[in-house]
């Protein structure tokens, strides 16, 4: 679906931001890119959508080199949710905003189909359509941005710190919706996220970066259990994994409070029986 082949990138008059990164994402994967500030995460997702062109190496989306086609042509296929929704929102009502995105990439469907699709999306996100985006809270504006991206039904969704500045409920609303897209429509999701609890709850695969290089690529709970790797990448693992690591053998699978409580009870029962 998306393939990075020995990709490097350097901004003008600066050292390399991304160096020799290679990985491949298959359809329906949910991956998170992890790393400290300045590790090259944001540059990597921008390269994945062709917003930046690699200085060397190739980025392939569905087999097509991003250097050979334009970002705007790909928009129907690749949706990009930015950290700041205000850069995306440009219309006076939520309805217009969603229609604008649809008209831009699916104009050939005809106005009637687009209106119908807009109604569908508005209903699903519980917007009336008449709200003014700029009088909504930041979290609600992020939902507007997500709604207008999902309206065009992309095959790939790229998220750059989508939950920054959002409260817990808003964060869950956005992430749950993205998970549904991933599970029901097999949309490939890649996200940059600083909240390791969110990564643990939603992503299946983790790509760990440091200093512009890909340090590790693996399944989510296992990656967090690699203490050396976490140290190298300046990542603090999620709380339950951190607790499990401290407690040692027998707690390998206790990565949520529920599982942790069950494990404790089971071990307690065993202890009592002995």
């Amino acid at each position: 679906m998306i393939e990075l082949d020995k990709v490097s990138f350097a901004y003008a008059d600066q050292g390399p931001s991304v160096q020799d990164v290679s990985f491949r994402l298959e359809k329906g994967e949910f991956a998170a890119i992890l790393g400290a500030n300045g590790a090259g995460k944001t540059t990597t997702v921008r390269l994945m959508d062709g917003l930046l062109k690699p200085t060397s190496g190739r980025v392939l989306i569905g087999g097509m080199d991003t250097a050979a086609s334009s970002v705007s042509e790909r928009a129907a296929k690749v949706g990009f949710l930015f950290q700041n929704p205000d850069r995306q929102i440009c219309k006076n009502t939520v309805r217009e905003e969603i229609l604008f995105g649809l008209r831009t990439v699916r104009g050939q469907d005809g106005e009637e189909a687009l209106q119908a699709r807009t109604d569908e999306i508005l209903k699903e996100f519980s917007f009336s359509g008449e709200e003014e985006p700029f009088s909504l809270s930041r979290g609600q504006r992020q939902r507007v941005a997500l709604a207008s991206i999902l309206a065009v039904e992309p095959e790939i969704l790229i998220l750059d710190e989508p939950t920054t500045g959002l409260d817990y409920l808003e964060c869950c609303q956005i992430m749950d919706r993205i998970r549904r897209m991933n599970e029901e429509q097999q949309v490939t999701v890649v996200m940059v996220c600083h909240d390791m609890e969110v990564v643990l709850d939603y992503a299946h695969r983790a790509l760990v970066m440091a200093g512009g290089r890909l340090l590790a690529d693996g399944a989510v709970p296992e990656i967090f259990r690699d203490t050396d790797l976490m140290e190298k990448a300046s990542i603090l693992p999620p709380q339950m994994i951190g607790l499990g690591l401290r407690l040692g053998a027998g707690f390998e699978n206790a990565d949520s409070p529920e599982k942790m409580a069950e494990t404790v009870l089971a071990l307690r029962g065993k202890g009592a029986a002995q």
Binding site: A36, N37, H194, I235
Partner: peptide
């Protein structure tokens, strides 16, 4: 007021 919004967990 939310002084660490742009920072990674370690920072």
């Amino acid at each position: 007021d939310e002084p660490t919004g742009e920072l990674d967990p370690r920072s």
